[in-house]
Simulated assay, not measured.
Amino acid sequence: MIDALVIGAGPAGLMAAEALVAAGRSVVVCEAKPSPARKFLMAGKSGLNLTKEEPFKAFVGRYDADWLRPMLEAFGPKEVTDWARGLGQEVFTGSTGRVFPEAMKASPLLRAWLGRLAASGVHLRIRWRWLGFENGGLAFDTPGGRQVLNPAVTILALGGASWARLGSDAAWVPRLAEKSVAIATFKPANVGFRVDWSAHMTRYFGQPVKGAALIAGHQEERGEFVISINGLEGGGLYAVSRAVREGAELRLDLLPDRSEEELAAQLSTGPGKVSVTNWFRKALRLDPVRIALLQEWGRPLPRGNALARLVKALPVPHQGPRPIDEAISVAGGIRRDALTGGLELKALPGVFACGEMLDWEAPTGGYLLTACLATGQWAGRAASADIRERTA
């Protein structure tokens, strides 16, 4: 018998363990992979974006789930920053408000965190794969054979359904569904979209598109994205991916700082004796990548005012989102109405859940990691309180 079992050693699970051990609980963390926090480490390879420094109203407004608000109030951008500094990792804020550790990578922060957890008494067991519930306990496939644990409380932090090779394989879904836990179907979030390119676009694969705005329904976002062999991907696109996934038409404003009237005046004379490419370059100061997109999706090119409208709202024909396993994150998961205010599963008293297992969605830019940490801490504190009530 142990006080608390945490299944999953990603950011949400480790934060839950930290909250539990801080409350004086004995904690075991079980991780199926040979090492913890693999998706966290992967996210940090190109620069670990911890959180976003902005007014809280704007910050919390980037989430699609209002019920996360108290958790983000308890552990929001300031708390994430203080937590990283408490692990000896100084941070800095970029020009867009994104907060990064000075080392940029995730590995120094993770090493410091695991060291602190071990020193606090948290026991990490790797290659322990959860098999499901068994005779009132939780069964695991382990290097030493099948094991069954009987904790006072359990926190599930098993991730979503993207990047299965890093551990988020959603194998837990049928195990909870058979226990009558309501689960919303997973959908890809922060994901690229498939495009069937013509041959002339090959030269632009891997190149970023800068200076454009993406329009999806009533949403407009500025941000860089990339042309890939499979279609379009990158942070600017991810910001509108939810709206596009739900059916909004995707368009590009190739010159968001210039009005349609201004462009119409500049395009009124036509190309004359120069090539269309040179005309766009000289008249509009478009770079080769945006000119290529205009020609890819705008032909046959109209003239005059119609061409100006096309530059300001170029339709993006796509074949839907890339597969869910390629998505940065997911929408869907354990529904809000299946949880108590402390993130305990109503159908399974004593079992809590956190992180990407829960049904919420947010863009990249520090929002994902902050919510994983916040829900992990919230679940850990609630589980500790549950133990206290049981033993009072």
Rank of each mutant, 00 (worst) to 15 (best):
A392N: 01
S228W: 06
R69L: 01
T370K: 07
A385D: 12
G137W: 05
P77D: 09
G132T: 02
N190L: 15
Q207W: 11
R336H: 10
H218V: 10
V99C: 10
S268Q: 14
R251T: 15
Q295M: 15
D287F: 05
F140W: 10
E53P: 01
G115Y: 05
L156A: 08
T340F: 09
L214A: 08
G44I: 07
H200T: 11
E361T: 10
K45W: 04
F225S: 04
R203G: 05
G86V: 06
A37C: 04
G376E: 04
Y204T: 09
E260K: 09
Q319D: 15
Q219S: 13
L369T: 08
F205R: 13
G115V: 06
I183L: 05
T51R: 08
A308E: 03
L250D: 12
V122L: 00
N150G: 00
G137T: 12
E79M: 02
R85Y: 03
E344M: 14
E220I: 15
V122D: 01
R175A: 05
G47M: 02
I334M: 06
A112K: 13
V27H: 00
Y63M: 05
A12G: 01
D66A: 11
L348A: 02
I328R: 12
P321W: 08
V122Q: 00
S329P: 03
K105L: 14
D3Q: 06
L286W: 08
G304Y: 08
N305I: 13
D82T: 09
S228V: 03
S162V: 10
I328N: 14
E249H: 11
W297S: 09
M42P: 01
T391I: 05
I387K: 00
T142N: 13
G24C: 01
R85I: 00
S241F: 11
A170Q: 14
K179W: 02
T202R: 14
N278M: 04
R245Q: 13
A32M: 09
E53N: 13
L138A: 07
K105W: 09
I183Y: 03
K57A: 12
T93C: 11
T202Y: 03
P174V: 06
F100W: 12
I227W: 06
G88L: 07
P271N: 00
W279D: 04
V316S: 05
P174L: 08
P256Y: 11
G160P: 05
A327V: 11
S259V: 09
G13M: 03
A12K: 09
C372K: 01
L294A: 12
G137L: 04
L138P: 01
P300K: 03
E53M: 04
R281Y: 06
K187P: 01
L301A: 07
L301R: 10
F140E: 07
L138N: 10
W113P: 10
